[in-house]
Amino acid sequence: MKTPVVELAGVRRIFEGTPPVVALDEANLTINQGDYLAIVGPSGSGKSTLLHLLGLLDTPSEGVYRLDGIDTAELGERDRAGLRANRLGFVFQSFHLLGHRTNVENVMLAEVYRKGSKSERRTRAIAALERVGLGHRLDAFPTTLSGGERQRVAIARALVGEPSLLLADEPTGNLDSVTSEQILDLFDQLHHGGLTLAVITHDSDVSLRAERTVRIQDGVLSEATVVPTGDSP
């Protein structure tokens, strides 16, 4: 059996204050390679905290988090940032594209903090954009694109360099239902291509597409046991 992509063991995240807020309590979670996981829960439940922990943007107060078998607690800032650069891909609700740069340049930004050859950055960025079906809008600016297209550019940026895990935070939150469908179709496609995905959402349409669903309520993580129609066709 291969090493799981993500292993959370007894992870807690407590925000200091009076009184201290337990945003995530005793979370145990394993995401294996090729998993398609949806994390659902009402707002304020700790979804975002979990995503930030998984994305190495935040550190657990307690517990162990291994990414690709690497214990992240022991790492310094540069190594944590390096893991973000090389093994994680982020997709945000508000896209986070730079308006003054073309789509290709936006995608190329993903490799700025990575080691490796710079000469082929453009080639790889173009390949990623073609993979999300935007091969024809390479040199357009994101400001001229529709919401769905912008999210595709953001997904392409996350895909460059083949991350171990793609983290999506409400990827369809700013999109209409038709465009959302297209993005979810793209996720399905990527999942079938072997990509490991973790999608945070409160939209049941999104969670239904996933293989697994994890529910958070008041900082407590629980795996949904039965997923009646969750299997992708």
């Binding site: 078998g69 690497i70 190594d79 390096g82 893991l83 973000r84 700025v112 903090y113 710079k118």
Partner: peptide, 19 residues
């Protein structure tokens, strides 16, 4: 196996002068 995997050095983040 886990320990072996954990030995694998993490790739440090870089930001070259050209970048």
């Amino acid at each position: 196996e886990l320990v072996e995997e954990a030995q694998e050095p993490a790739e440090a983040s870089t930001f070259s002068l050209a970048d």
